[in-house]
């Protein structure tokens, strides 16, 4: 029950900055779409006046553009930053809010789970917004080109297979699940880093560096195992090994986080 309350509390706290991020993302993308279409139309008109033919535009051109990539990059960086900040902000200042959180009569791992679920909800929320925004952008894109009678190349389905977008538009439910597990793994690693760093900061000035070493060390062994055995295994076995290594790493990270949160954390 406390976990749900904590999730709701965390979501409420992040609401404003999250909406600002979504606003920036949409403004950047729709603004750029307008500028992109304006430029394409101008080029098309110019070519038409010069009597040149064969000019086509694809939605992929828009997706591959620097500004669109930048907007997605901003969202990714913001989410990585938030995964760390969701912990660090509670340690800020003398009257650290973390002191209050740690005295709530609830298991400390409930705090961890609440923060983790919050970050995952924000990421999934951003995915959902990007899905809808991209579909709307495609509608606007095709409507504009049709109105200007500029030939359109490719389809929406082809466009969303582009590069990193395949993560957001997976081919199957299973792929979607795999992507979310991998994203969750990255968030878990970031959480572990913060907790190790916060657990060590009163003991050594090198706590950030040490925390990076601890987390990297924990991830290194399974990674080396995968790399080493990769060449000797069939495809199915490789997937199995990867799955096992991932489970091992998630288990290790969770145990380490739990230990630091319950035994080492100092506020």
């Amino acid at each position: 029950m406390n976990v749900l309350k904590l999730i709701s509390w965390e979501l409420d706290r992040v609401k404003k900055s999250y909406l600002i991020l979504v606003g920036i993302l949409l403004l950047l993308q729709f603004g750029w779409l307008g500028a992109f279409l304006w430029r394409q139309t101008a080029t098309y008109e110019q070519m038409r006046l010069e009597g040149m033919t064969g000019y086509t535009v694809s939605f992929l051109h828009y997706l591959g553009s620097t500004v669109f990539t930048l907007s997605v990059g901003v969202a990714i960086v913001a989410m990585i930053f938030f995964s760390v900040w969701i912990w660090y902000r509670d340690f800020q200042g003398r009257g650290t809010f973390m002191m209050r959180l740690l005295t709530i009569p609830t298991g400390r791992m409930e705090l961890f789970v609440a923060k983790f679920v919050t970050v995952m909800m924000l990421i999934l929320g951003l995915f959902a917004i990007q899905w809808m925004a991209l579909l709307l952008q495609y509608q606007l894109f095709t409507a504009w080109l049709n109105a200007k009678m500029i030939p359109l190349q490719g389809s929406f389905e082809m466009a969303i297979q582009f590069d990193y977008l395949a993560i957001m538009y997976p081919e199957s439910g299973f792929n979607f699940l795999v992507h979310q597990v991998l994203i969750g793994f990255v968030v878990l690693a970031l959480f572990t880093f913060v907790l190790v760093e916060r657990g060590l900061w009163q003991r050594t000035l090198w706590s950030p560096l040490l925390a990076i070493c601890v987390v990297s060390g924990l991830l290194a062994l399974p990674t080396f195992l995968i790399i080493y055995f990769d060449r000797y295994l069939f495809m199915d076995e490789q997937i199995g090994l990867f799955g096992l290594a991932l489970i091992g790493m998630v288990f290790g990270l969770t145990l380490l986080s739990r230990r630091f949160l319950s035994k080492k954390m100092s506020v």
Partner: peptide, 8 residues
């Protein structure tokens, strides 16, 4: 504690 633990 001797200070507030809530956001100011």
């Amino acid at each position: 504690p001797d200070h507030s633990t809530f956001p100011i």
